[in-house]
Write a protein that binds this DNA or RNA. Sequence first.
DNA 1: CGTTAAGTTGGTCAAGTGACCAAGTCAAGC
DNA 2: GCTTGACTTGGTCACTTGACCAACTTAACG
Lengths: 208, 208
Amino acid sequence: MTATRKHISADVRREQLTAAALRVMKRDGIAAATTRAICTEAGMAQSTFHYCFRSKQELYTALLSTDINVTLDAGNWPSVDPTAGAADNVRLLLRAYWSAVESDATTHLVLSELVNLAQREPELSGLPAWQHQAYLDKATALTERFAAEAGLVLTIGTRQFAELVVAALNGVGSAWLSHRDNRTALETLDNFATLLAGLTEPLPAADA
Amino acid sequence: MTATRKHISADVRREQLTAAALRVMKRDGIAAATTRAICTEAGMAQSTFHYCFRSKQELYTALLSTDINVTLDAGNWPSVDPTAGAADNVRLLLRAYWSAVESDATTHLVLSELVNLAQREPELSGLPAWQHQAYLDKATALTERFAAEAGLVLTIGTRQFAELVVAALNGVGSAWLSHRDNRTALETLDNFATLLAGLTEPLPAADA
DNA sequence: CGTTAAGTTGGTCAAGTGACCAAGTCAAGC
DNA sequence: GCTTGACTTGGTCACTTGACCAACTTAACG
């Protein structure tokens, strides 16, 4: 058996603490994530917190810049079906992201809370922008892959297309967090899919 | 002169307190809006707070159910130009809402913070849904008026159209709160306008 | 006028909060 | 083995928070 060492490197402790913090925040909200609650969750003395982090803000930074975004990569994107229409394929993509949101609502709630927090603290004010950019990059890459595999070209810039996708997903997501009506959310999402598909056209056969 | 009465009815005091709370929240964030800070802002003793409100949650309720939504009505919607195309008119509408957001970012930030809070507190959990519904109703009414004035019919249900509008605005809005890039936000908004305009068609001349 | 109820206030309470420190414990390197 | 530095911990500090109360002041009403 792996002997439980009494001493653990500060780096590992930091990871344990951020993980515990995320767990507490998901369960009880960001306001309930006091240093004590976090350390209890992680099974360590409260003093350990300030040995690993200079301040609580440092935890927020660590959380926003690494831990949260990992969960987004987890969504396994479906592959494109070339025989289906553009609308069907876009819908498939949006729904893939959507099911990730729906099945892990609390994570997205916490993310929303963290971004709100960061928008107030001057020292963290850069993180929301950074985080949005990360979303955008992911959507852009996905869009490009999607267009190539489906044999489509976009009638507007890829970046602008991605911006639409992110805004639509974000809008539907935050609405759903409020009303929790799955049917409406999916319906709206599908409508967006149809609209977005209208911004594509078949790859021209051959030119210049 | 209107003599400053030493005694003020509890109802008026409640209004003063919610107004002061909103001011503090806009300035320093929802977390900084302690009962003390609010009462100081309102120029009264802290004890007054618990004479007017049974608890702090009661203030949150009052805030979410009345004060916030007032600010949304303030936006004077432009009238439709029948000579212009549908896309131009939709764009005009979206931009009208947008300028309201842009010129009063902190209010929308506070709204976002309040909704986040309410989503955690079981006693307030109904308010976000209610608040979303209010948005939706407003968008629906506006859409109907818009379609009538512009001589258009929607190719999807009015409600579903409104849902798209709200999601788009919300998505663009929350993205902008993160990156604060006006150009990108407007660009995305205009792209949405074009897409939404595609869901309309001219009123049929005569049938049945 | 005097009574009564509504409004007002300073002071106080218990329960937290983030931060920190000094005294300990452990594991590795000489 | 023993020194050294990384890690651990209980205890404590100064401060804030929501809540509350008892005593006071004002205004309305008969």
